[in-house]
Design a binder for these strands. Structure first.
Lengths: 245, 245
DNA sequence: GCTTTTAAAATGTCAGACATTTAAATGTAT
DNA sequence: ATACATTTAAATGTCTGACATTTTAAAAGC
């Protein structure tokens, strides 16, 4: 992996790519120690700051971790779900906040993913997941609940639904979609009327999951998608006016 | 955003986080220029190499891009789908290759996502998408096709299915799942018998999409999932034996 | 007025030094 | 001999200052 040809891009980017390739190809295995910065600098014929910039790039992607002190160094990192979540959420949030993705598209993707989870959730849901969903439904019915709290509870509810599917990859994918929509969702004013409607649909979803009735859950999710879309569109319209004004 | 309290983590990580927050919170907008490295070093009271390490971290996440020369500098980057794909694929591939995710779980997630796309694809598929699917089916039936080529064609087929849904966020999510599974899929030996079976299912899927029969597409995808799982398990079993042997 | 040259500003890179952290090796006392 | 304290070495983290390269805008020249 050691060599890189004479091209004009950043040396630190080239070095990062070379090491990244080595990791992805399996030439370096988890927890294996990389050569020290000084050794890498020698091997690649660059200075230590350049090597360090390359290593920081890899650290930003959670590909490596570093440890100070004797017998420290840079080690290939076993990517954890938490780290993967973090990457996913950062990326998704930016895609949405930079308007590369519209609210409509994000909303559609999110509910498509949730519906994909529904059959698995109906099949595997534990009492614990159901209890969480019921508890959040109860909370959402409390009078005097702030919009932020309502929104947070909404997220917890949907998260329980997805986690009930028992597939961490799906949970991880959804996390991105749900978190990314949070800022926009938080702009929504949840009237008593809309809360009532959402509550009704949440209850239908929970009931469907409890009775392992996947199609009913999917139908309710469809309706919730349409309703969310309507609420979101009002907010987005208001946002556009504010921008142009 | 300028200050960061006295804690013991890396300064470059702290600075990267501060700038990241500013971008995500919208304090800095797309294409806005960051202060020069020297100015940032002043503001954060650190040296230029430390600032540079922070900037490289952000560059690794495609949050910023840099431009050399006068009036150059670091600019907030509009995250493109391509860049987001790249991030997603790197992360997903590592999750799978490091065995943090089993083949079964990845496979289940992938087909759950594809089924989520099916109704949308059935509704929106263009002649172009259908043509791609048909063409790949035809290719998969050619005798003398190598396993790699068969596999590549398989990816193109599924990609067309997902793209037909017309939701770039779903395409982006799937890209990760599909790409990540590639290395394992490539280890599969596709016998004439298994190719025939896959071809049959692909045809059913294409037919269902063409006739806007979403349920039929989902059913066929279910069967294809079960079949893929079976093929994959053989490979994974062989892999385990090789490791322990 | 157009072209060429120049200057300035910014990132990219290097070299060397010092600071800090950490664990092993060593030494010392009970 | 064991337990504890000390030293030491290796590594990352940080700083300073310098030079190289790239790029654009402004100045100079025709």
């Amino acid at each position: 992996m050691k060599i890189n040809p004479e091209n004009k891009t950043d040396l630190s980017a080239q070095i990062a790519q070379a090491i990244r390739d080595a990791i992805v190809n399996g030439d370096m295995i988890v927890d294996q120690r990389l050569p020290s910065e000084a050794e890498l600098a020698d091997q690649f014929n660059v200075s230590r700051p350049t090597v360090r910039e390359a290593l920081k790039r890899l650290a930003a992607q959670s590909l490596i971790r570093t440890q100070r002190g004797a017998f420290g160094g840079a080690f290939v990192n076993r990517l954890s779900y938490e780290e993967a979540y973090g990457q996913q959420i950062t990326t998704s949030t930016l895609l949405l906040s930079m308007n590369a993705v519209s609210f409509d598209v994000a909303c559609e993707a999110r509910y498509a993913l949730e519906r994909a989870c529904a059959p698995l959730a109906a099949e595997r849901r534990s009492p614990d997941h159901l209890a969480t969903m019921r508890a959040e439904i109860h909370r959402q019915g409390q009078p005097g609940l702030s919009d932020e709290s309502f929104c947070a509870s909404d997220v917890t509810f949907h998260r329980a639904l997805v986690d009930a599917a028992g597939n961490p990859v799906l949970s991880y994918q959804l996390a991105g979609a749900v978190e990314a929509m949070q800022p926009l969702m938080n702009m929504i004013t949840f009237t008593a009327r809309s809360r009532e409607e959402i509550l009704r649909l949440h209850t239908r979803i929970a009931d469907a999951i409890e009775t392992t009735n996947a199609p009913a859950a999917e139908t309710a999710l469809h309706e919730l998608e349409a309703y969310t879309l309507m609420l979101g569109r009002d907010v987005m319209a208001a946002r556009r006016i504010k921008k142009s004004g």
